[in-house]
Amino acid sequence: MIHLIRKLGCTVAVALLVLSAGCTDAASPLSARAGEPAFNTGGGPDVAALARFKTKPQITIAWAKKWIGPEGGRLDFYGFAIEVPAGAVDKVTMFTIRLPVDPKGSDHVLAEFGPHAQPFNVPVSIELPYRNTSIEGIAQPTIVWWNNGWFDMGASVTADGLRLRTSTDHFSTYGTTDQRGGGIHTSGG
């Protein structure tokens, strides 16, 4: 019994250590590339042009992370995803998806992907929710990234119809929209 209590105590201690490290990091915004806003900076992205969820997801944790190495891997979180192909990174790297928790941002299909300032050897794919959003079924939905304005990345609907997908060589804040022009710039940025 004493052995079991010690084992349980060690397990709880390790879990608390991991959670506190994650919570500490989660409390501060990921640092974006120079000139790009990040969540919680006060100068964040204008979400007015972005798609909205038809039913707002019940998000209890707004941040996910996964260590992915040179062999590649995938991180899925509330309909958002990162797919890292083999060879995209040279060493094990922490990939993250952070969702906005403020009422204005969390109604919209919007997420910050990380790591920032990390060059990829080959493009990495990201996916954002499409089904049950205000742009589901439109002719030309797209993924946009924020750099003091929204830039069109292009997108395709996944085979299962659940998400929009695009490839990128960098991470930033991304959203989905059907608007071209009116603040949406066409760029492969």
Rank of each mutant, 00 (worst) to 15 (best):
A64Q: 02
A64G: 08
A64R: 01
K65S: 15
K65H: 11
K65A: 13
K65R: 09
K65D: 11
K65W: 07
K66H: 06
K66C: 11
K66Y: 10
K66L: 15
K66S: 13
W67H: 10
W67R: 09
W67Y: 12
I68C: 12
I68E: 08
I68G: 07
G69F: 05
G69A: 08
G69P: 05
G69M: 03
G69T: 05
P70D: 08
P70R: 05
E71G: 12
G72K: 02
G72E: 09
G72V: 13
G73C: 11
G73P: 08
G73E: 01
G73N: 06
R74Y: 06
R74G: 08
R74V: 15
L75H: 03
L75Q: 03
L75F: 05
L75C: 08
L75V: 04
L75G: 02
D76H: 09
D76V: 05
D76L: 09
D76N: 15
D76S: 12
F77S: 05
F77P: 03
Y78K: 07
Y78V: 13
Y78H: 15
Y78A: 14
Y78L: 09
G79M: 09
G79D: 04
G79W: 04
G79Q: 08
G79T: 05
G79P: 14
F80H: 13
F80V: 06
F80G: 04
F80C: 09
F80T: 00
A81D: 04
I82R: 00
I82P: 02
I82M: 09
E83W: 02
E83Q: 12
E83H: 06
E83I: 14
E83S: 15
V84N: 00
V84K: 00
V84F: 04
P85M: 11
P85T: 10
P85Y: 06
P85G: 10
P85V: 12
A86W: 01
A86E: 14
A86D: 10
A86M: 09
A86R: 11
A86K: 11
G87W: 13
G87V: 12
G87N: 08
A88F: 06
A88Q: 01
A88L: 13
A88C: 12
V89T: 11
V89P: 02
V89H: 01
V89W: 04
V89F: 11
V89R: 00
D90A: 15
D90V: 09
D90Q: 12
K91T: 15
K91C: 05
V92T: 12
V92K: 11
V92W: 08
T93Q: 13
T93E: 14
T93I: 13
M94S: 04
M94P: 12
